[in-house]
């Protein structure tokens, strides 16, 4: 049975209100979704809140997932990102946001450049990180600002005075190259 079929069966059981299936999904994804939410929110309580909201949505809306969306993990990470970015935006609307303009573009991929940490990453994570690091600086910057910091392409254009078209083409190229490098993994093939 391949990963996709297993995912579909699991999500179907969750849609049928099988609490054991939800717990199984939780055990499988707790660490990666928490780490991702923590990366986006940089706050452990907020990250836990985001993970809780994620599993709340899955428990109540599992029926909405269908395999045409992509892998189950893709759906879960996309939900985690949406939830976290909503929280970030609420947070920055409440408090005076740190002006992004002050950030140095060169520092945006700060933690992904910390090679010591790659030891702890999963094999998959290491491959993705390596693929990210192979991108040009400008592409890494837009991916960091947009994907991990939750800015829109328009916001990156406005805040960093880069023409919108340039931002868009950097994003497109970056994703295209990542896709090329990670093609096997995207299909859920084992990389061991």
């Amino acid at each position: 049975m391949n990963e996709k079929t297993e995912d579909l069966q699991l999500i179907q059981r969750i849609a049928d209100r099988d609490a054991g299936a939800l717990e199984h999904l939780y055990d499988t994804y707790e660490r990666p979704v928490y780490a991702f939410a923590y990366r986006l929110l940089n706050d452990s309580m907020a990250a836990e809140e985001a993970v809780q909201e994620l599993f709340m949505r899955i428990w109540n809306n599992a029926g909405r997932y269908d395999s045409s969306y992509g892998k189950l993990s893709t759906w879960m990470f996309a939900l985690t990102r949406n939830i976290s970015i909503d929280m970030l935006r609420r947070r920055s609307a409440r408090a005076a946001a740190i002006p992004v303009e002050d950030e140095h573009l060169n520092a945006v991929l700060d933690e992904t450049s910390d090679t010591e940490l790659t030891v702890e990453r999963t094999l998959e994570g290491e491959r993705v990180l390596a693929a990210l690091q192979e991108l040009g600086d400008e592409q890494q910057q837009v991916i960091d600002l947009i994907y991990y910091k939750g800015l829109t392409q328009q916001e990156v254009s406005d805040r960093y005075a880069i023409p919108l078209g340039t931002v868009k083409s950097r994003v497109r190229l970056a994703l295209k190259q990542l896709h090329k490098r990670l093609a096997g993994m995207e299909r859920g093939e084992s990389q061991a």
């Binding site: 609490a19 939800l22 717990e23 939780y26 055990d27 707790e30 660490r31 990666p32 979704v33 928490y34 780490a35 991702f36 923590y38 990366r39 452990s44 309580m45 990250a47 836990e48 993970v51 809780q52 599993f55 045409s68 969306y69 992509g70 892998k71 993990s73 893709t74 759906w75 990470f77 996309a78 985690t80 990102r81 933690e111 992904t112 910390d114 940490l117 702890e120 990453r121 999963t122 998959e124 994570g125 993705v128 990180l129 990210l132 991916i143 994907y147 991990y148 994703l175 990542l178 896709h179 990670l182 993994m185 995207e186």
Partner: peptide, 28 residues
């Protein structure tokens, strides 16, 4: 679908972080 899977994988590249103690019990 491919674009989604590619962006979804970016989530795996982040620095590993250990969830707070008791998070599973609280969330479930």
């Amino acid at each position: 679908t491919e674009l989604r899977d590619t962006t979804g994988m970016l989530a795996l590249a982040v620095r590993p972080a250990a969830p707070p103690t008791g998070m599973k019990a609280r969330i479930l």
